[in-house]
Design a protein around this nucleic acid. Structure first.
Lengths: 184, 184
DNA sequence: GTCTATATTGAGATAGAC
DNA sequence: GTCTATCTCAATATAGAC
């Protein structure tokens, strides 16, 4: 009798594969190899490869938002922590699993597509909540723009290993609210 | 005797497939169906699926840069035309084939990876040339940041159909040089 | 929960006729 | 340049024993 592989471990490894290889490029075989199982055994834990997308993004959203400083107490601390968590992952891993999946899921995988949409909507909504606590004007627009700028900067990490655009995006994000009304 | 399929047509269709489905998700079978050939026939025109990446990106770079206004004469016209070409494609197609390939090519496809690197480097260099004609400070940094912001905005087009972040990125790009020294 | 065995499908690619 | 025929491999997924 061997120890069952913890489900959390499987999802973490699936995330690495989706981030690096995308939805189509990641295989159940590769995932099985990483966790020391036969590919068939994964199907007793997950009904399909597609269903893994929701699990991966739920874990990622939790990693990103869990234990943030309370925006009502110190919105700047909450904002800074969130931005640095996102950017920190991009620096460490070189790219964003959510963006790779956003581009990679299609009409053939509607459940995965819905999970991706929900992931980014919730992330943006969390950002909006923080910006509202800081009485930033047009928080929905600022949140979407900020996330887009962080995501876009991963282009240069993945192609050239250049972190500068990401750092610039972080600096712009952290300057939000310094002087309301300043053109961005 | 039937008319041979023009090679340009094959590359254009391959671009559509790579943009929508990524490198792994696009198949030679799908491409053959689109151009009315058997999959095997594609191999008399292209040595491999991987080699299509370079063709697709060469065509895209040409589409993007051909016939731009001369920066030496009117750098703002050149800049505006270039930004609007890039953003126009993103609006029309919903996403960027270069970004999808940047995330999708791996160490297993080194030639494709190199083609992607070269594509973005040349695009950035073209932007740098225009900004230099406008005596914009730190042109390399501004070019990379601008392209990153346009690319990142496609996240919201692909997930929610929201064009606003892209339009904001365009507005920021077109404001470059309005007053040198202004914080971005 | 994991295994062996297997089904099914589709991928990229090559050989040789026309 | 395109075709038919074929090769080889890997993908997702299921059935049933332990």
């Amino acid at each position: 009798m061997r120890e069952p592989v913890p489900i959390h471990r499987i999802v973490v490894e699936a995330r690495e594969l989706f981030r690096e290889y995308g939805y189509e490029g990641a295989s159940m075989r590769d995932l099985a190899d990483r966790v020391g199982l036969r590919p068939q055994s994964l199907y007793t834990r997950f009904s399909s490869k597609e269903s893994l997308v929701r699990e991966v993004l739920a874990l990622t959203l939790d990693d990103t938002l869990a234990g943030l400083p309370d925006p009502a107490t110190d919105w700047r601390a909450a904002w800074r922590t969130l931005i640095e968590r996102i950017a920190g992952t991009f620096e460490a891993r070189g790219r964003c699993v959510g963006l790779h999946l956003a581009y990679g899921v299609t009409a053939q995988t509607p459940d995965a597509r819905d999970a991706v949409r929900a992931f980014f909507a919730r992330l943006r909504d969390a950002m909006v909540g923080i910006l509202e606590a800081g009485t930033i004007s047009e928080p929905a627009s600022v949140a979407a723009d900020t996330l887009a700028q962080l995501e876009g900067a991963t282009l240069w990490i993945t192609t050239e290993g250049d972190m500068e655009p990401l750092r610039h995006a972080v600096e712009r994000a952290l300057r939000i609210g310094d002087q309301e009304g300043r053109p961005m």
